[in-house]
Amino acid sequence: MDGANGVLLVAKDPETVRAVTSALGSGKRPTLAKVCGDLPELTAQLEQSPAGIVVVDIDPAPRRALVELGPIVGRFSDTRFVVLSRELQSDLLLEAMQIGARHFLVKASIGADLTDVLRRLMPTGRTRTGGHGSLITVFSAGGGCGVTTLAINLANELGLEVSSPALVVDMDCAYGAVGSCLGLSGQYGLTDVLDHHGQIDEELVISTALVYSPSLHVLLSPASVNYSDPAPLHYDRLESALEAFRSAYYHTVIDAARVGMDVAAGLASASDATLLVFQLNVKELTTARALLEALTRRGVPAESIMPVANRYRRRGRTIEMAEAQNALGRPITPICSDFFTALRSINYGQPLAQTAPRSPLRRELQGLASRLVNSHAKGARANRP
């Protein structure tokens, strides 16, 4: 059996077997290697020859099947499991995620979706970046200062800059602003990475993230997965998740607009750059100064923190840039005020590169992305033995 490309199917129902066989019968990757009649047969097969992906039909007793499947998922942690069922019920989906299944697929969509799901889950056998991707965390010093718009577009420009997708991670449990801005929703997101029982690795991150475009992937917040009852984020394994982000993507942008100070300090300490976004007014400048001081007191290097004055107007300012820089004790990167261009991007659910590619706002974000890419490249060269 081809362990890298082959798929094991666990099913007794002839109709399900036919549907999966038909979906995987094109001769292209992935291919169906074997059909197991039950979970004990699957266990024996995996002991004999490891498989990259296993598809399990959990009908007609889905709850009992998931209970029995859980220990197998935990034992064979290098294998990715997909479950099939007639109906997608929220309690079954939650239980499947809790035992470590990577995807829950309704049987009616086998023909249309199974191949794409399995291709996303197939092990690559290597890491994308060797663990050397960059992390950029974006904090907000005030509500409505445009931090999510900045995070989305910065990530997209980073992806375009290096011709490889960048990841934007949405940590906003209240609104799921990244998903809302891009018109995205899905079954899985950041919660499933942080709560994963097995190893948190690049394959888990890539298979959980949504592909928005060739330059931008998105890891949804709990609010974008289930707005009425978003799951809490547990940060016990945040460090492992951050390392997996580095391995999976050349650049990861974390939209951390609403996190506690302990989490904020952990993110900033692990990040190559921390953007502190605010508007140039007394209230947000005061908050930015307090946040900057709190982070540095917790050991975050001041030189890694980049204050960003968003929606900066060259005329009609109440606070001069020199005064603001003196208050923060740091240089400030201005991003121009281009409200209607940004609003158009939000209304269309598209990055500025699509809605306003020649706008001043997009050019300034391109410049910021280039600056961060060059800074990361210099740091990588300096760290080479």
Score class of each variant (00 low, 15 high):
248 A>T: 05
85 S>T: 01
357 P>L: 05
91 D>C: 01
82 V>G: 00
302 A>G: 09
336 C>I: 15
40 P>E: 00
357 P>F: 07
383 N>W: 07
381 R>I: 11
136 I>F: 14
226 N>R: 09
144 G>P: 01
17 V>R: 06
345 S>W: 02
175 Y>C: 06
363 R>K: 14
203 E>T: 05
336 C>L: 13
235 Y>T: 05
226 N>D: 09
292 L>G: 09
212 Y>T: 09
38 D>W: 00
227 Y>V: 07
2 D>A: 12
190 L>M: 14
141 A>L: 14
221 S>L: 00
115 T>Y: 10
196 H>W: 06
228 S>I: 07
77 S>E: 06
304 S>E: 12
145 C>K: 08
25 G>L: 07
359 S>D: 06
9 L>Q: 01
19 A>W: 01
315 R>E: 15
54 V>M: 00
235 Y>G: 01
376 H>P: 04
159 G>W: 10
355 T>F: 04
19 A>G: 01
96 A>Q: 08
15 E>V: 09
329 G>V: 11
300 V>E: 13
177 A>K: 11
322 A>I: 11
281 N>C: 12
253 V>R: 04
220 L>V: 05
103 H>W: 04
212 Y>Q: 09
248 A>I: 03
23 A>I: 03
370 S>Y: 06
316 G>K: 05
101 A>I: 01
376 H>V: 07
225 V>P: 02
183 G>L: 11
44 A>Q: 03
317 R>T: 10
194 L>G: 00
166 A>G: 14
311 R>Y: 12
310 N>H: 11
261 M>H: 13
300 V>N: 08
330 R>L: 15
61 A>D: 05
300 V>C: 14
288 A>W: 03
78 D>R: 11
380 A>Q: 10
273 A>N: 14
297 R>C: 10
202 E>L: 03
251 H>S: 10
30 P>Q: 07
184 L>P: 08
6 G>C: 01
231 A>G: 03
17 V>K: 12
144 G>E: 02
117 V>R: 03
113 D>R: 14
374 N>W: 09
240 S>W: 07
263 V>H: 09
156 N>L: 06
213 S>P: 07
237 R>I: 01
256 A>N: 02
137 T>H: 12
14 P>R: 05
263 V>K: 10
263 V>E: 02
39 L>V: 00
43 T>G: 01
383 N>A: 15
342 A>N: 07
6 G>Y: 02
348 Y>V: 09
343 L>A: 15
141 A>G: 15
205 V>L: 04
113 D>V: 05
197 H>R: 11
67 V>K: 00
311 R>P: 07
218 V>G: 06
116 D>P: 05
359 S>H: 06
6 G>A: 02
257 A>M: 01
78 D>W: 02
176 G>D: 08
165 P>G: 12
156 N>C: 13
121 L>V: 03
115 T>H: 11
213 S>D: 15
128 R>D: 09
302 A>R: 15
18 R>P: 00
167 L>K: 12
283 K>Y: 10
68 E>C: 02
143 G>F: 03
1 M>T: 03
121 L>Y: 00
275 L>G: 08
97 M>W: 02
228 S>A: 15
299 G>E: 09
220 L>C: 02
339 F>D: 11
297 R>Q: 15
270 A>Q: 04
127 T>A: 13
367 G>K: 09
82 V>D: 00
384 R>M: 15
336 C>Q: 10
327 A>W: 11
289 R>P: 04
119 R>A: 14
62 P>E: 02
379 G>R: 12
95 E>M: 12
